[in-house]
Design a protein around this nucleic acid. Sequence first.
DNA 1: CTTAGTAGGCTTTTT
DNA 2: GCCTACTAAG
Length: 790
Amino acid sequence: MKLLEDLNDDQRAAVEFVDGASLVIAGAGSGKTRVLTYKIAYLLKKGLAPSSILALTFTNKAAREMKKRIADMVGERTARYLWMGTFHAVFSRILRAEAAHIGFSSHFTIYDSSDSGSLLKSIIKEMKLDDKQYRPGLVHSRISAAKNNLITPAAYSGSTDLLKSDNNARVPRIHEIYHVYTERCRMADAMDFDDLLLQTNILFRDHPEVLNKYREHFQYILVDEYQDTNYAQYLIVKKLSEQHQRICVVGDDAQSIYSFRGANIDNILQFKNNYSSAQVFKLEQNYRSTQTIVNAANSLIDKNAHQIRKKVFSEKAKGQKIKVLQVYSDIEEGQVIANHIADFKHLDEYDYQDIAVLYRTNAQSRVMEDQLRKNYIPYRIYGGLSFYQRKEIKDVIAYGRLIVNPNDEEALKRIINYPARGIGDTTLNKLLECAALHAVSAWEVLNQPLQYNLAVNAGTAKKLTGFADMMKVFMAQAEVLNAYELTGLVIKSTGLLSDTYVDRSPENLSRQENVQELLNAIHEFCETRADADEPAQLTDFLSEVSLLTDQDTDKESEKDKVTLMTVHAAKGLEFKVVFVVGMEEELFPSLFSMESPRELEEERRLFYVAITRAEERCFISYAKSRFKNGQIHFANPSRFIKDIDPVYLDQPAESPFAGRTTVFDDDFGPDSGFNQGLKLQGGPFPSFGRLSRKEPPASQSSSWKDAAQERALNPASVNPKKLTKLSRRQGDTPAAASSLPVGAKVRHQLFGEGVVLAVSMAGANEKAEIDFGSKGVKTLLLKFAKLEIL
DNA sequence: CTTAGTAGGCTTTTT
DNA sequence: GCCTACTAAG
């Protein structure tokens, strides 16, 4: 078979073995995705129907990319029928189909983490507990851990161990909160992320006929990133595959970095025990990195006790040593890296797009961004707030959610008084308490206030009725309009955007554009669905969108920029040059991991992931001082640097900071407090103060400005889903010469004919205000709006 | 009930 | 430094 020619012996063996369970241990850069895609193609060529193959990935992005690659091999028409996606996406689809079995409706809402947090907060308040003691985040993580281990509220209350542990942590009533939380979710016809896995397990446990249906349906199951699966995921896979054993899991225990989310590394370590006849394949040849990088990474991971031993090797060039950079401050760190990047570019060694800066926490991006901008280096940033987490987007989505599922309490809470319509906290709390008292949804009370003795005065009652009536109009319209039309109607008739029109501040413009971008996305969704002759109602859009949190498409305008992201986000990616920054104790490894050897090993794996992203050059930097929470913190170099065999490192010969390269006051010699681990809190520090406040000229021109402004003002040009810290730093640009003259007549496919009132710039993009007569005046981005000039 | 202003808290990583 | 949650005034 021709497709096998592209594979090495190990890869081919893994691909061709299809008669039983198999575990593929794939070292970093060893062609893991290649094996998965070729294996699927192989199965298809062997005659397996695409719809009978289930391929589970960890991120939407991975699923998309794999699907694309397979489509290239076997054709889009075949590939589209594969069941390929994240656990959450695939099983939410199944849960919607089987919802009736477990007491949900097929259009149940998926609560995101902030919905869960907000609901927990309400519950904690209602139970009159102290939210300092019962911090919603802490409570949520305990409940989440319980769900990931398939512990229901009843089981939780029945477990003396858990109760004891909660007692010790001084949060003895968590099991009660868990009960109420579960009831409230059910009342709201909502599932949180963890429910998607828990409820799937419940469905399969309580309805063997349903389990059998899917068992027979999925003739072959593949799981990517198996080291990151948790118990709930493990059991789903096991139930589906244990009869026919046609399962292939791929992973690398050395890259298990999600235990905080319940991932259990034992799933991969114990695979052979669970599938007794399992074949194990090891992919040990790294095709990505130089020998030095691979060997350095090996020497690091060797310090972990918990692992499957393997010999990852590279046959590429030996390559240069990993350079260790030591600097005084986070600011200098940014500066030094910016200099290196500028040199690479000027010497024509690397383009910006070949370079990534990886950090442990998103908070570290700010300083790096500042320094890159000052040096006119274009960058793109992943992480921070995703598109669908922006306030204005969540508001629109919340209206949609409530229309589709009026019992969605979190959506109701969000919009019942937004835009302001005189329904304040007092009223809302009365409403929610009343609903909780009668064990009905808030929407139910809203519709029958008298029946449930809702104690509000006549004026307030009227406002509530007004809101409910408005929503009912939308709900009726939802029957006839598609998602795009309905969302447009909602935005228009609620005046959701009206407070963004009060001025032309970059923030407001950005909000408008974000909403426009959402509308564009919905529009595109509707068209795609229409082409495929599939429904394009709001409910269809929402069920797709609720699990989209992923970084997305690389657009043309994204080319040749330095990438900034967390190490977690970088998993699965590769760059010619990688800077791993902030290699300091208490940051990497993080403070929270230092107590436990297990977590420390996970941090080490994380560092391993970071280093193995690099193909040719790798830099590691650590700073002596760093701003954290508005205070200066001092730290020692990360212990992980010492874990790397020094023969692979190019580090300053002397003790930390003795051989520094920049000119500074001599306050911090090698014997200063830093090296003794002394911690200083806050307070002005003479030399540091000077260093940190020294601002470079605020000139703005050339390439970075376009980059930054694009990012700031036009989410679409960056990457539509992920975007941090919008426009604070940049103002509006003056209008440039336009391709669209004012006064021109145009036609828009939805709004019909209109007249151009004004054209201006939004970042790097032109936008036009167009009067569509009866359809109103719209502001449209020209790059999106499909306008026909008449 | 709304808004503006201030005090306090917080920070790991993400489907 | 940033965001949220609370407080005081309209």
